[in-house]
Design a binder for these strands. Structure first.
Length: 494
RNA sequence: UCCUCCUUAGCUCAGUUGGUUAGAGCACAUGACUGUUAAUCAUGGGGUCCCCCGUUCAAGUCGGGGAGGGGGAGCCA
């Protein structure tokens, strides 16, 4: 008897575990089952639009109000969590293939309709940002976060299929020499009365780690160490920058993917980045075609509100397909500058900032190259040495005054820099000299230099800003809308 | 950090040259209806007009300061 009930309960659970996405295919009908989810709307005292997060499509649960207690029906409010059991049948109505004729409904979690802040209508993204704990329950954020997940998995899948080793780089870092930006201090000292050294500075020898520590701004240097033994590695973890950046493209806490490959040179590095981007975009689009469709329509709707000249040339889907179907444009920095100097925009003095060889290109320049000139992702390589990081490999045979390094940035339409990478300087003497020039303490970085002392080799890698990738794929304009709980200057709610 | 715009009901927004009791749609409540698709119809409740100071007989409206938010720039991924 016990065994029988066990088998029955297993069978029932198998039925119960069907999510709404799979039920809506219409492959299974005339079966008895239970669904659980959150009420989106309750129309006509008769039709519940039930959502369980598996898709933006709702399952229509049909209620015969003559059979149910009025008190129960009153509790079926927007965002209430319910369990509904009944028979899944072909729908009599037009809007959906199947519907569930409810025998029993259980309220799992009430939702006071008067107090619940979200309505079955379009809300502004700004408003939802202030309700970040509830915005998962909207179609837009449902789609965004399912796609974020698919992109995340797609990245692991891409690297794992190519036998890369996933490496966890440290979150707490003692190095403040990475030069990637302002850092958040990590300390257990009582900040209201910090211990002081004789010369009046904070005595970090009494701190938890016995030295000054910060949150990581990059896992790259550590990834290089691993790549020099494991060959192909990647990191994928949180990254922290204490810059006072208030833009649609910056977060104080974000996730970054940093592959590092021994023996790779600049071109192979660019190949890897392009292949990876195409792979993960394709994966996410195939996995969640319906979410892409939803966001595509959403964006098209939003574009309609804008004046003609401000509208995007491509829809979201057109943009993504275009990226998949075409090679990224590859140009050197020197060529990019030449294009800018020859451009009508430059000749008509449309640029706010001047263009000449040696400048760090401004947003307006990058946008011109990507959005006006090439109209697709562009890989710009071989930047001037003077504007790039110390660890980038100096190019051979440069004209004096025009020294470049083996750097590469991938610029994406609408987002700007999505990938930044380089071939690393593997020659000890060159690296030491460069660090001295840039006042980077070589003693503290002994471990990084040791790599060049003991079996050095050419290697290359890049950093991909994960949220910028999610922005690109979802078409979301503000980076705060592609991470569940954004951390930005003056904002650490939730 | 700089430039710029915004802040009026739970949400989205209107509010004229400063003038009586600040409006609409949606949401919510009550009722009607019952195969709806953000259901519909009727009725109703709901306001620190972001805050402070000032000008004025009179401020949602004008001036100054502040706070919060959006967009752009810089820095970057």
């Amino acid at each position: 008897m016990c065994a029988l009930s066990f088998v029955i309960s297993r069978y029932l659970r198998a039925l119960m575990n069907l999510d709404i996405k799979s039920l809506l295919t219409g492959e299974k009908t005339d079966i008895q089952l239970t669904v659980r989810g959150w009420v989106r709307t309750f129309r006509n005292n008769q039709f519940i639009a039930l959502n369980d997060g598996s898709t933006n499509q709702n399952l229509q649960v049909v209620v015969d109000f003559n059979w149910f207690d009025d008190a129960l029906l009153k509790r079926i409010t927007t965002s209430a969590c319910i369990s509904a059991s009944g028979k899944l049948v072909a729908s009599q109505g037009k809007g959906q293939q199947v519907e569930l004729i409810a025998d029993t409904i259980e309220i799992l979690g009430d939702s006071d309709a008067e107090k619940y802040p979200l309505q079955p209508k379009k809300h502004s993204l700004e408003f939802l940002r202030e309700k970040a704990h509830l915005r998962f329950r909207t179609n837009t954020f449902g789609s965004v976060f399912r796609l974020r997940n698919a992109l995340s998995y797609g990245i692991h899948k891409f690297f794992q299929e190519r036998d890369f080793v996933y490496m966890h780089s440290p979150i707490v870092s003692a190095s403040d020499a990475e030069g990637a930006g302002e850092m958040f201090r990590v300390t257990t000292l009582d900040i209201s009365k910090t211990p002081k050294t004789e010369d009046g500075n904070v005595d970090f020898s009494q701190d938890f780690f016995g030295r000054s520590t910060n949150l990581t701004v990059s896992g790259q240097l550590e990834a290089e160490l691993a790549a020099m033994a494991l060959g192909k590695v990647y990191t994928f973890g949180p990254t922290f920058r204490a810059e006072n950046s208030n833009t649609t493209r910056h977060l104080a806490e974000f996730w970054m993917i940093e592959p590092e490959v021994a023996f790779n040179e600049l071109k192979e590095n660019a190949d890897l980045a392009e292949e990876m981007l195409k792979y993960v975009i394709r994966y996410a689009m195939e996995k969640h075609a319906d979410d892409i469709d939803f966001l595509d329509a959403r964006l098209a709707d939003e574009e309609k509100q804008k004046p003609l000249q401000e509208r995007q040339e491509f829809s979201l889907k057109e943009k993504l397909n275009f990226v998949l179907d075409n090679d990224f444009e590859r140009i050197t920095y020197t060529e990019a500058i030449k294009i800018l100097l020859d451009s009508p925009a430059y000749k008509k003095k449309k640029f706010q900032y001047d263009v000449k060889w040696g400048i760090d290109m401004q947003s307006e320049h990058e946008r011109y190259l990507v959005e006006k000139h090439f109209k697709k992702p562009v890989i710009v390589t071989n930047y001037p040495k003077a504007i790039k990081a110390f660890y980038m490999r100096e190019d051979e045979g440069c004209e004096p005054g025009f020294e470049t390094v083996a750097a590469m940035d991938i610029l994406a339409p609408g987002i700007g820099e999505i990938v930044g990478g380089s071939q690393r300087e593997e020659r000890l003497d060159r690296l030491e000299q460069r660090m001295k020039e840039m006042h980077i303490p070589t003693e503290e970085m002994f471990w990084y230099l040791d790599l060049r002392r003991f079996g050095t080799c050419k290697h290359a890698g890049f950093g991909l800003g994960f949220e910028r990738l999610v922005q690109f794929v979802t078409g979301m304009g503000n980076i705060r809308d592609v991470i569940p709980f954004p951390r930005t200057p003056k904002n650490c709610e939730f």
